[in-house]
Simulated assay, not measured.
Amino acid sequence: MSNGREDEIAANRMLADPQAVRGQLAADLAEIAALGRGGVQTDPAAGSRAMAEVVRANADRLAFRSPVEAATLSLRRLRELPVAERGAGSPIGPYHAAASATVAHGELRSASRGRLVFDRVAAEVAHTTVTLQAVVEVDADGSVWLEAFGWPAEPDGAPIWVFGGTAEEYLAQAVTDARSGMPFDRVMSMVLGTASAWPGPVGTEARRIELAEAVAARRGELGAYVSNAESYALAVRAHGPFAACFYRSALETLFEGFLGGAAVSLVDMEEIEEIDDELRDVVAEVGPVPPGAVPAGIPSHHWWWHPPSP
């Protein structure tokens, strides 16, 4: 399983070497072809529910329209899956497997002619779950394609992340994850799980310092997390505001509860301001996350979940 720092190093190497970019793309396309996902065909005249059953039965054959898109989404959205579903090495196989599991075993949330949406609640750590969503398109000729997979882009008001443990339990998990080399986004999700303790401090001072030191030791990955938060903010119009708000709240919880003034030396605060400026404009435009989808315990001053009217 790769971490954010390794991905950043690999990306920088490829940017410096166009041949490496071509080689990586060729390897990704070969891996996608090796999955053997020949696509799914259904009767376009059948009802939506009947089409959904055909799609479920053939979930392991579902593919994205473009192999390049499949490779891009696998890399970009693998971090939205629980760690246990990410596998090791390339993200392509695990990402497609998780999408198929969501279609095959998830709940059919909505079905209309041409579009099927499946939701699956997946376990993360104890008392913690995340909802994954697979969106499937059915063409007029009956061809079936994966359109999107990851956190729901259009939440219906049901929780996406459920933090059912205590703030102290999430602090302990965050420390363990940070020190053991767990993917940094998982560390930050556990940090967000401590937000329910606001405005009081969570855990002992020694424990809070332990987390701050562990995060500081992974400074490069923290920077990559900030960059991912900005990417999500820039993609709100296309993919909805949930992911951007989730990442921004995780950062705010880290700053306020654990890093304090040290955040200035670890993070480019101008990037945080740029994220806030983008969220202030775009979330007011597209509308906020439905209240029921906002993780429980988010402090009220995390305004990006409920921006003021323009």
Results as ranks from 00 to 15, higher is better:
272 I>Y: 03
242 F>E: 08
218 R>M: 02
131 T>Y: 01
291 P>H: 08
170 Y>G: 04
250 A>Q: 02
307 P>Y: 09
267 V>S: 10
179 R>L: 14
289 V>S: 06
239 H>M: 12
206 A>W: 13
11 A>D: 07
296 A>E: 15
295 P>W: 14
258 F>P: 00
189 S>F: 15
217 A>P: 03
114 G>P: 04
292 G>M: 07
84 A>W: 07
76 R>K: 14
1 M>V: 03
29 L>K: 06
62 L>S: 05
236 V>M: 02
130 V>E: 01
33 A>W: 11
74 S>C: 05
263 A>C: 03
292 G>S: 05
111 A>T: 01
305 W>N: 01
272 I>K: 00
192 L>A: 05
263 A>I: 09
290 P>Y: 15
235 A>D: 14
190 M>C: 04
60 D>S: 15
268 D>M: 11
49 R>H: 05
266 L>G: 01
39 G>T: 04
77 R>K: 14
279 L>K: 04
173 Q>T: 15
79 R>I: 05
274 E>G: 07
291 P>F: 12
166 T>E: 14
118 F>E: 00
3 N>S: 09
56 R>G: 06
259 L>F: 02
71 A>G: 01
184 F>N: 05
237 R>E: 02
166 T>R: 14
58 N>D: 14
140 A>K: 01
116 L>R: 02
54 V>M: 09
233 A>E: 05
256 E>R: 15
107 E>C: 06
287 G>A: 02
292 G>L: 15
186 R>S: 03
206 A>M: 11
159 P>S: 08
17 D>W: 04
268 D>K: 07
116 L>C: 00
261 G>C: 07
249 S>C: 07
230 E>K: 12
69 E>P: 03
14 M>Y: 13
173 Q>M: 04
56 R>M: 06
231 S>F: 06
16 A>V: 12
196 S>P: 10
48 S>Y: 01
23 G>V: 03
273 E>V: 04
254 L>T: 07
26 A>M: 04
159 P>W: 06
249 S>E: 04
182 M>G: 09
86 R>P: 06
65 R>V: 14
218 R>F: 01
98 A>I: 09
143 S>C: 01
140 A>W: 02
116 L>E: 01
168 E>V: 11
216 A>Y: 05
84 A>H: 12
